[in-house]
Computed example of a mutant assay.
Amino acid sequence: MSNSIADGAKLTPETFADFIERLKYHHRGDGVSRHITADPIFMVQKNATIYGLADEYCEARIVHCDDCEWGSPQEYWDDADEDERDELNSLAQDMWESDFLECEEDEQWLLLADLDNHTVSGTRKEWQHVNAHLTREAAEAFIRRKQHDYPPLRVYVESMCYGWEYQEIIAALCDGRLVLADSQEVSQ
């Protein structure tokens, strides 16, 4: 069992002391030079693919058919069987008087988009927030624990320089003004 709340340990005086030490390191200590960000918050982000974009807004194109996806006409060609390749060449000959692989890439995309049950669309990759952590160790522990549930994950450090509540709570924790109570009882 881990001795850190970053890894899921229960909050005890020992794990709280470890947390405060890590918090000070990232917010006031040598860890600051690693991320060079004021008032850091450690975001876990996933690399997501956005589909269905028009050509002028996309980074790449894909072709979909029957729950399959190809990132280029060449990939599609490489997966095609002999009959499918003959059909592609025949269609390309009819349209541009060239075999499929001899056509310009834009022509290949147009031909693939015209095939029955095929869709060509634009895509773009972007990083999307999954969750936030007070320390890098907690963000990295989340990635170790959940990487199988997401596409590629990373830790991205953002600044909470305008998050006044956040800053005050972090400062109070680091200064020792906000401490772990000795008792688990809550008085009303």
Rank of each mutant, 00 (worst) to 15 (best):
G122H: 11
E56G: 01
D67S: 06
A38G: 04
W70S: 04
D94P: 06
Q128F: 07
D116G: 07
G29N: 01
A60Q: 09
E75Y: 05
L111V: 09
E59L: 02
T123V: 15
R28C: 11
T123L: 14
G122P: 09
F100H: 00
D83K: 09
C68A: 11
V32T: 04
D106E: 15
Q45E: 13
Q108S: 04
W77R: 03
C58F: 12
E59R: 14
E102V: 08
D67K: 00
L88H: 14
D81C: 05
E84M: 12
E56C: 12
N47Q: 10
D30Y: 05
D86M: 12
G71K: 06
R61D: 06
E107Q: 14
D94C: 09
D79M: 05
A38Q: 14
Q45G: 02
D39W: 12
R28W: 03
H129V: 01
Q45I: 02
W127P: 04
T49A: 13
W77Y: 07
G31P: 05
A60V: 01
N117S: 12
D116I: 00
R124G: 00
G71N: 07
C65I: 06
S121Q: 07
E104H: 14
Y51K: 14
E69R: 02
A60I: 03
V63F: 00
V32D: 00
T123G: 00
V130Y: 02
L88N: 15
A113Q: 13
E105G: 12
A113K: 05
D86A: 15
G122D: 14
W96G: 04
T123D: 08
H35G: 06
S121D: 13
